[in-house]
């Protein structure tokens, strides 16, 4: 298998405080990798280094075959990103959002038009094309944001708590989109607080105090800790 993310002793410290301490892990192409941890465990800091907006203090990571320490620009071109905040422009309509976000990744007008039609069709947005994005239901907004993050066909998509504040049905539908993307070979790197979501991942890692304390498939983790649910595993580790 091909490796799309490989962290080697990835470390970030702020003064005396080490937020991320020598992370080592690999994520394979097309894999859905869950990145779990309590608030303040260092998830966000680690993710910022992987998406090229924060430089590691020590160690390094390869993302989509580029080093985050020295080739951040190339990393950025080959990844997609969606954050917990709904991050499209509210006062633009669907087409304008797609044109803008696709445009900053260098897609040309013809491709953008194709992508636009594709997205509208896939998500069933026909009734909303004339409206500003702020008038869309939250679930649709999130699906749209995810599709926008995939416009430039990135090798890896980073999802930072993508389903915050969404009902379970919509969350389920959102995960169907994630599976589809993974089937097409896109690697998914997702942080979440929802344990049911963690169950959907191929493998999950649990971060405590800047270190990865456990990394395996959900099934193997439950077995290892003798727990019924991932929630128990998580509570065991975080304490």
């Amino acid at each position: 298998m091909e490796t799309t993310i490989k962290a080697t002793n990835l470390t970030k410290s702020f003064g005396d405080f080490t937020a991320v301490d020598k992370l080592n892990f690999e994520v394979e192409k097309g894999e859905i990798f869950g990145f779990l941890g309590a608030n303040g465990a260092g998830k966000t800091t680690a993710m910022k280094m992987l998406i090229g907006i924060s430089k590691p203090t020590a160690g390094d990571a390869m993302v989509a075959n580029y080093k985050v320490s020295t080739q951040a620009d190339l990393v950025k071109k080959n990844i997609g990103y969606m954050s917990q905040k709904f991050a499209l422009y509210d006062d633009l309509n669907i087409k304008e959002n797609i044109q803008f976000f696709g445009g900053i990744y260098g897609l040309n007008a013809k491709t953008l038009q194709q992508k636009y039609q594709q997205v509208v069709e896939n998500l069933g947005l026909e009734n909303y094309v004339k409206q500003l994005v702020k008038n869309l239901p939250l679930g649709l907004k999130q699906k749209l944001a995810f599709s926008v993050a995939l416009l430039h066909q990135p090798k890896v998509v980073f999802l930072d708590e993508p389903t915050g504040g969404v009902d379970p049905i919509t969350r389920r539908q959102f995960w169907e989109l994630i599976y589809e993307a993974a089937d097409r070979g896109t690697t998914i790197f997702v942080t979440t607080h929802y344990m049911d979501e963690a169950e959907y991942c191929d493998r999950i890692s649990m971060m405590v105090d800047g270190k990865i304390k456990a990394l395996d498939t959900p099934k193997a983790l439950k077995k290892e800790f003798g727990a019924e649910t991932l929630n128990e595993v998580f509570l065991n580790l975080a304490r």
Partner: peptide
């Protein structure tokens, strides 16, 4: 505030 700055910073811009 709305989080789009993060997206812009992660983009190749």
């Amino acid at each position: 505030e709305v989080g789009t700055m993060e997206i812009l910073l992660v983009s190749p811009l």
